[in-house]
Structure formats: C-alpha cells, structure tokens
Amino acid sequence: MNIFRLAGDMTHLASVLVLLLKIHTIKSCAGVSLKTQELYAIVFATRYLDIFTSFYSIYNTLMKLVFLGSSFSIVLYMKYHKTVHRSYDREQDTFRHWFLVLPCLLLALLIHEKFTFLEVLWTFSLYLEAVAILPQLVLLQRTRNIDNLTGQYVFLLGGYRGLYILNWIYRYFTEPHFVHWITWISGLVQTLLYADFFFYYSQSWKNNKKLQLPA
C-alpha cells in the first residue's frame, strides 16, 4: 500500500459517501444519472467476486463491502425510494448504457491476462468502469449547470483515478514485474474522460460562478 493508493481509495470513498449523503439527507437525486450508478454497481459486483475466495487484508475486504453496499444502496434509493425516485430526471438520463456493457464484455473475452471466469469478469469490470461515467457526463451537459454536490461527486471520482495513476507509477518503480497494461490503459482512458469536466469545473471555481458546461 502506498500513499497514492490510500489517498485514491479515500477519495473514491468520499465520492460515494457524498452522493449517498446527498440523496439520503435532501431526499433528492436531481442531476444524478441512475445509469451511471447502475454501471458502477455492475463494476463492483463483477470486480469483487473474489471477496469470498481471496483475502488480502481487512482493509481490502472492508472497502469492497463498503463500495458494494453504497453503490447498490444508491441504485435502490434512486429506483424505489418513494420520495427520491420522483426527483430522478428520467427524461434527461437517456444514455443507452446497456450499449456500453456488451462491447466491454466482448472486449474482456478478447483481451485479458488469463482466460478464467473470475479474470474475464474482473477485466470486464475494468473496461466498464472506464466508461461508466459517460451517462453522468452526458446528463451534466444536458442539464447545463449542476448543483455543487454532483459536481463534487464527479470531481472526487476524477481525483481517485488520477491518484491511482500515481499509484501505478510508484508501484512500477518499486515492485519488480509490476506491469499491467490492461489496468493502466483502461484507467488512463477513464481519467481522460474526466479531463474536460475538470477544465470546466476549475474554470467555474476560478470565476466563482455556477458551473456552466458547454452544450
């Protein structure tokens, strides 16, 4: 474990807690894409299948349970909670996210490190995580401006990915054989998707005005 990865995990944890607290306290999910949350639930479900078969540390197992629990809670809140689901922006959140799932599954069947059930699903979760934010970014573009909690959510997610890249650089230089192209490339693609959002987010902070994303 290194400081970059710990900071990355904490930033990731903060992002899901910000979202969960927002939805739980103000009982609203306005501006949040249910499609992105569903994709993240699938990402965690397919990535943490090894939670029962391999144990790395208390920290690792605990964090997996937290991410699984929070992502599924957010989806259930948005879909079924009597008050929250009314604030879900169904008409605007129209990204056909199932069109992302199939290509990621096919790609995982083609490109993976080992052709085993767990490994292919784990690789699928990497590819899916890379594109899971797309429905949320599209929704932000559509609704033009965003409330600052959703902005903070996306900002923290981007920060977690950036810190993970620093973690991979650190591990590459400190651990022999630490070469994982699949993880690195999908992680890089994911981080680049946040790049333009970061630009507009930083602009809105600098000019201290409401975040307006270009159409």
């Binding site: 540390s57 997996k64 784990w122 651990e175």
Partner: peptide, 10 residues
C-alpha cells in the same frame, strides 16, 4: 505470481 499483485487493488 506477478499477475496477482494487481488484485490487491480496489
């Protein structure tokens, strides 16, 4: 052994 060391990441 080496490919396992990425699985300890979240």
């Amino acid at each position: 052994e080496h490919e396992e060391n990425i699985k300890d990441e979240l």
